[in-house]
């Protein structure tokens, strides 16, 4: 359970302005497992991802990544809230890919990928550049290293964002609707990169509406509605013969 790449969520609760968005989420992800989070908009999927890496503070519940508690330090029989520095250090174990890419607009693709290794990990610039170029080649963008995000297509930007997340050598990758903002013909190139990562044993939690991708790549499908997990299980089983009527209704609408 404490192996690199494991993720455990226990009783996660989160409210915004009196509205409870997450109402007790339990989830365990094994190293190398690919989990797809499905559900209607407003069901709390994106909020859950943001809670996992502490971009949002949880109201209750705990997150463990690689067996380490996120945001708190057990000391003398109590849980002390971690310093910002310690939380930032732990966050490196979780890469995140956003719906709107969120590439640093003032930096080239290469600088986007190098920024973390050089500025956060303190790595040598030449080494980091070599690795960053290799990562860009891996997502098929060898020839676009010098371009600013504004000169790249959405699909290219999202692949740079994946390379940026990989550059920190994370244990877990979190994807927040990575293809929802893309033109239909660009979705495939991003999904192909994600399929490769899954094949190489990366632990992934993917919020998505791409049922086909979930069927093909995910080990586990989790269906959320109204801030709770309605159903979860092997992806093929949940997506082809869901046991909950709510899941079946949702899938009928999406497919």
């Amino acid at each position: 359970m404490s192996a690199r790449g494991s993720l455990v969520l226990r009783g996660i609760r989160k409210s915004f302005a009196g509205t409870e968005v997450l109402r007790g989420i339990d989830l365990e992800v094994a190293p190398g497992e690919v989990v797809c989070l499905l559900g209607p908009s407003g069901s709390g999927k994106s909020t859950l991802l943001r809670c996992v890496n502490h971009l949002e503070r949880v109201d209750a519940g705990f997150v463990l990544v690689d067996g380490i508690l996120v945001g708190y330090e057990p000391r003398g029989g109590r849980l002390h809230e971690s310093s910002e520095k310690d939380t930032a250090r732990l966050r490196r174990r979780m890469g995140m890919v956003f719906q709107h890419f969120n590439l640093f607009t003032h930096l080239s693709a290469l600088d986007n990928v190098m920024l973390g290794p050089v500025r956060v990990l303190g790595r040598d610039a030449a080494d980091a550049e070599r690795d960053a170029r290799a990562l860009l080649a891996r997502v098929g963008l060898k020839d676009h290293a010098g371009k600013r995000p504004g000169r790249l297509s959405g699909g290219q930007q999202q692949r740079v964002a994946i390379a940026r997340a990989l550059a920190m050598d994370p244990s877990v990758l979190l994807f927040d609707e990575p293809t929802s903002a893309l033109d239909p013909e660009l979705v495939g190139e991003v999904l192909a990169v994600m399929r490769d990562l899954a094949g190489q044993g990366m632990t992934m939690v993917v919020v998505t509406h791409e049922i086909g991708f979930a069927q093909e790549v995910a080990d586990t499908a989790v269906f959320m509605d109204g801030g709770v997990i309605v159903e979860s299980g092997p992806a093929r089983r949940v997506l082809s013969s869901p046991s909950s009527a709510r899941t079946a209704e949702f899938l009928a609408h999406v497919l």
């Binding site: 890496n53 971009l55 910002e84 520095k85 930032a88 250090r89 966050r91 490196r92 979780m94 890469g95 995140m96 956003f98 709107h100 969120n102 590439l103 640093f104 607009t105 920024l115 973390g116 500025r119 956060v120 990990l121 964002a161 940026r164 997340a165 550059a167 920190m168």
Partner: peptide, 19 residues
């Protein structure tokens, strides 16, 4: 989103603002 992205690559808030 720019600050969020900086935090997810392990920057503290102060460094995210500066960089």
């Amino acid at each position: 989103g720019q600050i969020d992205a900086a935090l997810t690559i392990g920057m503290t808030r102060g460094r995210a603002v500066r960089r």
